[in-house]
Amino acid sequence: MDDWPIIFSYTRAQAIADGVLVDVTTQAAQIGFKVHTVVTDHLYNEYVVPPAGLEGEGQSVEGRLHDLLFRSLIAAARNGTGDRVEFDVLFLMAPGRWDTAHVVAAIGPGDRGEPVMTIMLPEDD
């Protein structure tokens, strides 16, 4: 298979540039992550970005992202040596209404074979 011609290749860097992946490496490093980290645009836009109407509820992208990354770090630490972990995160979606997002965090090779983390919804995998 190594000698098969490549018809199409879509790199992680291209996905970040296109907005399909959201680079959250800086925020992840502040929590303790040691690898390049992204969140899929689906997870980011559906849960991390607060829905309209929550301005007075203390909801912000920064706070919701922190919660997601912190839960990811705890789940990864409990997982030990595995390369994938699944866990739930609660997000306030409207005043008094919480949704549980089932989330997957997977570590794998980046564009140059380096370890990278992708945090996503199961259907984004």
Rank of each mutant, 00 (worst) to 15 (best):
D67K: 07
Q27W: 05
M1C: 10
G113H: 11
T11R: 14
V61N: 01
D83P: 07
D23N: 14
S72T: 13
F87T: 04
N79K: 07
A13F: 05
L69W: 00
L121T: 04
V116L: 10
L90A: 09
F87D: 08
I31D: 04
T40S: 10
A106R: 07
I6C: 03
M1W: 07
I74S: 10
L92G: 14
P122R: 07
E123N: 12
G56K: 11
I6G: 01
A52P: 11
L21C: 05
L90P: 02
I7W: 00
L90E: 11
T37H: 02
A13T: 10
I107C: 12
V89I: 08
T40P: 00
G110E: 02
L90S: 14
E62H: 06
I31V: 15
M120W: 03
G82S: 04
V116Q: 10
T100Q: 04
G56I: 05
R84Q: 11
N79M: 09
A52K: 12
P95L: 14
Q30H: 06
T25C: 06
A106E: 10
V85P: 00
A105K: 00
A28Y: 06
G82F: 03
P5G: 04
P51T: 06
E57R: 12
A13P: 01
D124N: 06
E62L: 10
P5R: 00
E62C: 00
D41E: 15
P50L: 04
G32C: 15
G113L: 04
D111F: 02
D3H: 07
M93E: 13
W98V: 15
V85A: 13
F91L: 02
Q59T: 08
D111T: 09
A13H: 09
R112L: 13
V61H: 03
P5S: 06
P109F: 04
A75I: 10
Q27V: 09
Y44D: 09
K34T: 15
V39L: 03
G110N: 03
G80L: 05
D88V: 15
M117I: 12
V35F: 02
V49H: 02
E62Q: 08
Q59N: 14
A94T: 06
Y44I: 08
I16G: 03
P122L: 04
A106L: 13
E86M: 14
D18M: 10
R112T: 12
R64N: 13
T118H: 03
V49A: 05
A17N: 12
K34W: 03
G96S: 14
D41P: 07
P5K: 00
V22K: 09
E62I: 04
V35G: 01
L54I: 07
A94K: 10
D67E: 13
V39W: 00
G82H: 01
G108E: 06
H66W: 14
D41G: 15
K34M: 12
H66I: 15
A28G: 08
V38C: 15
G19T: 09
M1P: 08
E62P: 00
G110I: 03
G82D: 02
V48W: 03
Y10N: 05
R71Y: 06
I31E: 05
L21N: 09
D125P: 01
A105R: 07
E57M: 14
R84V: 06
D3Q: 11
I7E: 00
G56R: 11
G80Q: 04
P122W: 03
A13K: 13
T100R: 10
L121A: 04
M117E: 02
V35M: 03
W4L: 07
T25R: 06
D111P: 01
P95M: 12
L21Y: 12
V20S: 14
